[in-house]
Simulated assay, not measured.
Amino acid sequence: MHTIKEIGRTFSYITPVSLTDRPILGMVVGNNKKLMIDTGNSEDHAADSVIVYVKEEKILFLGDCIYPKMYAEKVHYTVKEILRLLDELEAFDADTYIPSHQRPWTKEEFCQERDKLRMITKFTGLCGGDHQKIVSEYQAHVNRELKEDELETIDYFVNGY
């Protein structure tokens, strides 16, 4: 069942029921006006995703932009595109980030995801897209066994290299 969660003074959003549930809607209320935001469902998980910034509440709707390209021969990220995207997202002064299919992220959680993506892009380039070398370098960098989502992200970069 969908629930309405309040974030900030004038912002609410409708939670997804499952990871594939659509749409995620947001509502900004002020001066007797309401703005409904649908982050959309990109055909290939990034190419036409919409980013919406609510400055007064410091909320950034990420839509599907942060996810890998799904509708390709292999699910993938590309180093060039993810670095461009991260540079763009960092320009916003947000405290809350709302990706499609997930609960909202705090600024700290967004920064952790951003740092992971930046390091994996770095090692993808340095290692020439070699999966095992990237895994070894990233594991040495974080100084622990890699988590499932980190290994999956490495797979996506290798697929897009």
Rank of each mutant, 00 (worst) to 15 (best):
D115M: 07
E56V: 10
F61C: 04
Q102M: 12
R103E: 05
E73M: 10
T78R: 02
G26I: 01
S49Y: 11
S100V: 06
T3V: 07
L86P: 05
T20I: 15
V17A: 15
P99S: 10
E90C: 06
D149L: 08
K147P: 00
N32F: 11
D95A: 07
A46F: 01
Q132W: 06
R84I: 11
T96K: 06
N143T: 04
H101N: 12
E137G: 06
K34I: 06
K69Q: 08
E113W: 13
V158F: 00
M1Y: 08
A91N: 15
E81W: 03
D130P: 01
T15I: 08
I120M: 03
D64C: 04
I51L: 14
K55V: 06
E109G: 13
K80P: 02
S12K: 10
Y138N: 09
G160R: 00
A72I: 00
E109S: 11
P68H: 08
T15C: 03
D155A: 11
H131W: 12
G26H: 06
Y156A: 05
A47I: 15
N159S: 05
C65P: 09
H131N: 14
A94Q: 09
D115L: 12
I154M: 03
P23L: 09
T20F: 13
I82H: 12
Q102A: 02
H2Y: 04
L19S: 02
I98R: 00
R9I: 06
H2R: 12
D48N: 15
R114A: 05
I7D: 04
D93C: 04
K69P: 00
D87K: 14
M70Q: 14
L126G: 01
E150L: 11
L85D: 03
E56C: 02
D115R: 05
R114L: 13
R84M: 10
A72F: 01
N41W: 10
G63L: 03
K122A: 11
D93A: 04
D93G: 03
D115W: 13
Y97I: 10
A91P: 04
W105S: 13
M36V: 05
E81M: 12
E137D: 03
L85M: 08
N31D: 05
V52G: 01
G129Y: 04
I59F: 10
M1E: 11
Q112G: 15
V135A: 00
E152K: 14
K80W: 06
V52M: 00
N159L: 07
D87M: 12
Q112F: 12
F11Y: 13
N31H: 11
D87V: 14
Y138D: 13
T106S: 11
T106V: 03
V52I: 09
Y71P: 01
Y97N: 03
P16W: 13
E6F: 14
D95C: 06
K33D: 07
Q132G: 08
S49H: 02
P23W: 11
L151M: 01
V158Y: 02
A47P: 04
H141C: 08
L60D: 01
K147F: 08
E81Q: 09
A94K: 00
S42R: 02
F110Y: 11
F110S: 10
L19W: 15
E57K: 03
V79K: 05
N41Y: 06
M70Y: 07
A47Q: 12
K107A: 14
K5D: 09
K5S: 05
D115P: 02
D48G: 12
L60F: 05
N159G: 05
V29S: 07
S42P: 14
F11V: 02
Q139G: 06
F123W: 15
R9M: 07
